[in-house]
């Protein structure tokens, strides 16, 4: 049974220079209890997907396609019902911890809002957050709540945001770049945190990251994105051992442990997309057809791939 179902999602941003195709015909589904990863280099459209699910995109975004969550069609839900879903059902740990906390409000006020939304007694709520912050390896949680955001380090902000989002006990947690900007020690902490979350709540987690190792470590299945499209979806073990798409292969080859083989060239402009495969200019397995005809997604064993080779 699919639980989150994104189908033919397209997001265009209308800008002065033209319409930017940030997300271009994306479909994937998540099952209950699954940890699903979206990986791809920066700018490939990962965060836009996360924000489209919660309808957080700015007003210049044009969204098409459909996103269903359980029985709800998220893109056609009215604002009031959408608000019921935000936080409580689907919670998003944002990608920019430093900018995502209001600099003028005490941390405590920002946490208390979570319980205000859930209709839980604030005192008890705060108590549970204190426990959670301790679990997240934060010293002096009580003092942290009395602080303002600028008094926390980057890693602390990250964990503080995570604690807030986890307090909802959401059935779907979206984590956008949970390891961005962290040193290896904090990365390890984050990894532990996510393992712990998987075990504890049995809820679904959508991990959005450009950190391949982290995704491969934590996810059950991953989708690989390139220039606004999903090029391959499959179980982590398959992706790791028998990657199908040339781009996925290139990504893996670029990992330090695989010899750091760099991928040359640039991603195409997102305003004037080429007719053929978006990876054409950088692909070493391309044929003439790839330059003129855009490949469609095909089902292969265990997943899908978007490439003329299959």
């Amino acid at each position: 049974m699919s639980y989150l179902n994104v189908s033919s999602l397209c997001v265009d941003f209308l800008t002065e220079n033209g319409s930017v195709k940030a997300v271009n015909d994306i479909s994937f589904e998540m099952k209950k209890g699954e940890t699903f990863g979206i990986i791809g280099e920066s700018g490939s459209g990962k965060s836009v997907i996360g924000q489209a699910i919660l309808r957080l995109l700015p007003s210049n975004a044009v969204v098409n396609g459909s996103i269903s969550f359980g029985a709800e069609d998220l893109l056609s839900l009215d604002n009031k019902n959408m608000r019921q879903i935000r936080g409580r059902e689907i919670s998003l740990i944002p990608q920019n911890p430093a900018g995502s906390l209001n600099p003028l409000l005490k941390n405590k006020i920002q946490v208390a809002e979570v319980f205000e939304v859930m209709g839980v007694n604030k005192k008890e709520g705060i108590k549970s957050v204190l426990g959670m912050l301790k679990n997240l390896l934060m010293k002096e949680p009580a003092r942290i709540l009395e602080n303002h955001p600028h008094e926390l380090s980057g890693g602390m902000k990250q964990r503080f945001l995570a604690a807030m989002c986890l307090s909802y006990k959401p059935s779907l947690l979206i984590a956008d770049e949970p390891t961005k900007g962290l040193d290896s020690f904090s990365k390890k902490g984050t990894l532990d945190l996510f393992r712990h979350m998987k075990g504890e709540h049995g809820n679904s987690i959508l991990v959005i990251t450009h950190d391949l190792d982290f995704a491969l470590e934590i996810c059950d299945r991953v989708a690989v994105m390139y220039a606004g499209q999903i090029v391959e979806v499959g179980p982590v073990t398959d992706i790791l051992q028998i990657p199908s798409h040339p781009y996925t292969k290139a990504l893996l080859n670029a990992l330090p442990r695989n010899g750091l083989i760099p991928l040359h060239g640039h991603t195409p402009s997102r305003i004037d997309l080429p007719d053929g495969c978006l990876f054409y200019t950088r692909c070493n397995l391309r044929s003439d057809k790839c330059g003129t005809e855009r490949p469609a997604t095909k089902s292969i064993k265990g997943g899908v791939v978007r490439c003329h080779l299959y």
Binding site: L56, R86, P94, E113
Partner: peptide, 17 residues
């Protein structure tokens, strides 16, 4: 347009709040 407004929205707060 700031990210903390986006995060506040994602928390399920009402527009007035």
């Amino acid at each position: 347009g700031q990210d903390y407004i986006k995060f506040a929205t994602s928390k399920g707060l009402s527009v007035n709040k």
